[in-house]
Amino acid sequence: MASPTEYTKNKECEVKALPMKDKERLIREGKAYWFFPDHVAEQIIICGLILMILITITTLFPAHLGEKADPFNTPGHIKPEWYFLAAYYSLRLAEHFEFLGAWAPKILGIVMQGVAIALLLMVPFLDRAGRERRPSRRPIAMGIGLAAVTVFIVFTLLGYYI
């Protein structure tokens, strides 16, 4: 066994180091199953399904190719792909803060996106609720998560319809 560092004290980490007969016991008790062939077969089926979904979508809705770019002709409505609509709307939202000064719209737009990314990166360090993992015992984390997803969806819809 590995040395008792903080890392190996975590029981979840020890599965790999288990001797064969303990692995077989875990499987008999129903707590685990063989990676090969059971898990591998599952993965192959899932990958096949995803590929089937992709082929079906692209057959029914072929990828679009718009007209060639013309730098001298600005189209009326420039909308980004759906996953950038929320970011796009945050830029449009920032335009309403022009009363703060000419600097405000551009700076606030990029600050909003920067802060969102920074918060997302720091989630594990901002969560002070200890090691509790059950969602029902982490109302604050669940509330913030739900709020973030709601804001993203609302911004995406507003970005689409604005």
Binding site: K68, A69, E81, G109
Partner: peptide
Amino acid sequence: WTQLSYWATVVGTETPSA
């Protein structure tokens, strides 16, 4: 290099200039 991709990139590359 379509109209949409060209102008989306105009807007997208303008954003960090703030």
